[in-house]
Each structure stands twice: as C-alpha cells, then as structure tokens.
C-alpha cells in the first residue's frame, strides 16, 4: 500500500527520471561509439592566416580559404603521381604545393635556399615543411598529427 501510494504520488517524477536516464544513456553510447575523424590533412599558413587545407585522404576535397591568394592547378602538369596541386602567394614569392600518395611537397618556391623544395614529398611531422622566406608553414591535422613520434618504426624521434 505504501509503495502504491508512493508511486501514485511521484509518478510524474519517476517517469521524468527514467526519460532523462534513457536520454543520458543514449547520449553516452553515441559519444563512445561515434567515429572519430581519422582523416589526415594539412593546413597551409602564411603568417597566421590559413590559406588552404589539403585533404590527404581525399585531395579533391581540399579547401581554399583565401581565394585571392590560392589558385588550384592542373595536377597532370606536375606528374602522374600528383593528385592535387595549388599555387599560393607567400609573403614574397609564389609557391606550388602538391599532394601525392607519398604526402605533401613544395614543388617550387622563389626562396633563395630552396630548403622547402628539397624536402620532397613528406608526411613526417619530424621534418616540418616551412618556407620562412615566404612566411609559410604547414600544420598537420587529424590522425597524422596525433601519432607520437616514438611510434615510428625507425625509433627516431627527430632527424637533424
């Protein structure tokens, strides 16, 4: 009798409690099972302005943020291996970036040292791509950016 009276008195509260509990449980399950982004990409910055996002998983889905400073190029002009190519306006000279299966490369730059070009195709955060003459650098995002360097097969954390 007491239980019945309790239920009758607090029926609304009990229903509300279970509805909220159900919603919380669903939300938790959703968060735990929701696929995390495993796409790898790279943002191309000039000074602090992001000009371009290179989608390494789907190069054709790269995103141009500064249309006045970035031009999409015909990748076939740069070799069979090139999947996408872009010309950006650096601080001082234009630069051409390309994506292939091997990663990102600076194909050309007007800088005197050509250090950025000499790196070739790379996906190695231990050797960041930068053309400081043009104030341009590459920031990796997504899965590639979350791997600790000591997980590399060579056992080397950094290369000089």
């Amino acid at each position: 009798m007491k239980a019945k009276a309790f239920l009758q008195k607090h029926l609304g509260d009990i229903i509300l409690f279970f509805v909220l509990l159900f919603a919380t449980t669903l939300g938790t399950i959703f968060l735990l099972l929701a696929p995390t982004s495993s796409a790898s990409g790279a943002n191309i910055f000039c000074d602090d302005v992001c000009l371009l996002y290179l989608n390494l998983s789907s190069p054709q889905e790269s995103v141009i943020y500064e249309e006045e400073r970035v031009k999409e190029l015909d990748p076939s002009l740069y070799g069979e291996e090139v999947e996408a190519a872009y010309e950006i306006e650096g601080a001082l000279t234009p630069m051409v970036f390309a994506i292939s299966q091997e990663g990102i490369a600076v194909l050309s730059s007007g800088c005197p040292s050509q250090y950025c070009v000499s790196l070739g195709y790379t996906l190695d955060p231990r050797k960041p791509i930068v053309c400081a003459y043009n104030h341009v650098h590459v920031e990796y995002v997504g899965e590639i950016a979350s791997l600790p360097p000591s997980s590399s097969s060579s056992g080397v954390d950094i290369i000089v």
Partner: peptide, 23 residues
C-alpha cells in the same frame, strides 16, 4: 592533436632569409 598540440607549427618566420621551422 587539438589539445596537446604535439605537432603544432605555430609560427615560422625568417631570421635571415633562410628556412626556419618552429614546431
């Protein structure tokens, strides 16, 4: 990656016209 910024390339500026990387 977003929280730890383990591979953040924050700023790259030239000291002497040659490549400088900051990560």
């Amino acid at each position: 990656s977003s929280e730890a910024k383990k591979y953040v390339v924050s700023t790259a500026h030239d000291y002497y016209s040659y490549a400088v990387t900051t990560s």
